[in-house]
Design a binder for these strands. Structure first.
Lengths: 109, 109
DNA sequence: TATATTAATCGTAATATTGCAATAAAACAA
DNA sequence: TTGTTTTATTGCAATATTACGATTAATATA
């Protein structure tokens, strides 16, 4: 199939999965880390920095933008991308809540 | 392609992506949440709980086991799956470090 | 206006993922 | 041994993802 049955899961579970999927590729991890490092950024920088072709980077940026984790504004011929702090913070709350579940004191096996 | 160019990224970036990918499907999120909730668990429980076919659950369990996030021990005809606390804790450190990057005080756009 | 620069989009190929029916394997019970 | 229960594996179909060359769109500059 290749198609996740999202309808049988809770909104929360689907939300966690969506955010996680955004980080599920090292290029997007690298893009986000770079955006954190140098705040202001254009797509060209990322192409040089990361070493994938320009259309590929553009596609990864589109996914991150679609999720809301980054936003971009046109600056002449280039585009300035940066982290969207509101969405990033919201994502962090969602993911942290999932990661911080209490581990059982005794392992069952 | 469909094939990520892992060789051009750092080990850390690839590790983050691998862990994130594990959470990138709501079924695996649901499985982990269920394992947290009831500590001891067998595969059959999960099939009832989640509503995907038994082979599908088995496959998701295999992925989580391969990453080390869960472990399973045979108990007669059933298998007892549970969270692997060591790997979970390690994963949490890795992911939290990524999520907790400092947001810039002023957004660039 | 013509040209350069930069990023987005289109089209396509290759690979990965998801899901399940059918089947196999393993352990127990009668 | 034979059947039952439970999980794993196999094989396959459908869809998604990744990557990039070619092209387009938009803006700036000469």
């Amino acid at each position: 199939m290749g198609l996740a049955k999202t309808e049988i899961f809770t909104d929360s579970q689907n939300e966690i999965a969506l955010f996680a999927k955004a980080f599920g590729h090292p290029a997007r991890v690298a893009i986000l880390q770079h955006l954190f490092k140098i705040n202001t950024c254009v797509c060209g920088d990322l192409v040089d920095e990361i070493g994938l072709a320009q259309p590929t980077i553009s596609q990864h940026l589109k996914e991150l933008k679609h999720l809301g984790l980054i936003k971009g504004s046109v600056e002449g011929t280039s585009v300035c991308y940066c982290i969207n702090p509101e969405v990033w913070t919201k994502m962090k709350v969602v993911m942290t809540e999932f990661l911080d579940q209490d581990l059982p004191k005794t392992s069952c096996c």
